[in-house]
Design a protein around this nucleic acid. Sequence first.
DNA 1: AATGTATTGACCATATTGGTCAATAGTGAT
DNA 2: ATCACTATTGACCAATATGGTCAATACATT
Lengths: 211, 211
Amino acid sequence: MEEILKKLDSEKRDRIINSALDEFGRNSYDKASTNNIVKNAGISKGLLFHYFKSKQELYDYLEKFVFQKMIDVILEEIDWNETDIFNRIKQITIIKMGVIDRYPGIEAFGKTIYERKSINEIKVMIEKMVPDLYHQVYTKNIDMNRFRDDIDFDKIIQIIQWAIEKYSEEQMELMKKNGMKLDFLKIVSGIDLYMDVLRKVFCKEGEMEND
Amino acid sequence: MEEILKKLDSEKRDRIINSALDEFGRNSYDKASTNNIVKNAGISKGLLFHYFKSKQELYDYLEKFVFQKMIDVILEEIDWNETDIFNRIKQITIIKMGVIDRYPGIEAFGKTIYERKSINEIKVMIEKMVPDLYHQVYTKNIDMNRFRDDIDFDKIIQIIQWAIEKYSEEQMELMKKNGMKLDFLKIVSGIDLYMDVLRKVFCKEGEMEND
DNA sequence: AATGTATTGACCATATTGGTCAATAGTGAT
DNA sequence: ATCACTATTGACCAATATGGTCAATACATT
């Protein structure tokens, strides 16, 4: 299956993946309709079952896909030379938004994953990797001396990360709600305003330069 | 419809509401199944359609219910004499968790609301009330002099609120994932640890008492 | 026993389901 | 033009699920 998919025109492949992510994200496995998936992807029923031999195989593919994609893109695009945690977190946010831009259904789908009982080996393996990756991403080559040392470092990271995530989630929802296209530049510049505040309170005096 | 429902044994009414919130939260309107709803509520098909004359009426009732419930409970249980924003936010979080405890499906359902095009007058009215309520809840009778005055007050509130929300969301997901019952006391004591950090960085010196 | 209400679940016509497969369209080489 | 080959279609299938109905019960109160 994988091989036939690889050969496929990537624009069409993305259309299928997006349509399927969306349908599974909106509905439980049983209620998710392959008819809807092909309709929204703009392909025929036959073609879907040519690429995936069953609904279950399609679902399994997607489950692996969302993890793998996020991991790959982050590892590929992250700049490990960045030592400032604020810029690092901002980077990751931008990278994530890029993925969401290409695969809009990935978020909704991702949230449903842990509710389902499915336990294939790939999923187990990837889920083991994720915490480690997260740790690396938020600590590797980061200069910790900039922070006031009367506060637990992990908590600082958490609070910064939460703020950025919540802000971008809220902005994205707002834009979707009003039917606009997602404007990532606008979100990033909004993030900067909160970054300034967080720098001010979490960094030592004279340690606030942001390149 | 409303009148018949009111008379109903409240335990059974909650079972129906919860089952319906859950089903509509998991599935799009069309795919949500009244058969599933009655099965999980432990009632007969006939009874559901005795209380609600159609699927649509049931859905409309729920949409109104989730807004109204949240508003009512917050207004009822909030302590307006509390002047400390940290305690105020903690209060609201606890109140919200209480509602979620009683109506576990309310969150998932709530997130789907804005995706649907439905626009009845009640919804419009309530959605107008909500921002105002939120503003009151986070400012009314709150002592703003405790905060350092080199930072925009609204941003401070936002960051605190985001941190508390994210923390409780993550903890609740974790507990659900591991199949435990939601332990709100544990969540609240975890919140306190982050509160301490936030107090330390956002308050003026000597303004950190939390009774 | 009688009256009134709360609740059931078999039943309905219709729509939808995941999946198949013979047929067609498209492409590129000769 | 012809052939070979692959990519794609959509009508079709038996099986199941759909929202909603309603005559029949169960249950309580007098």
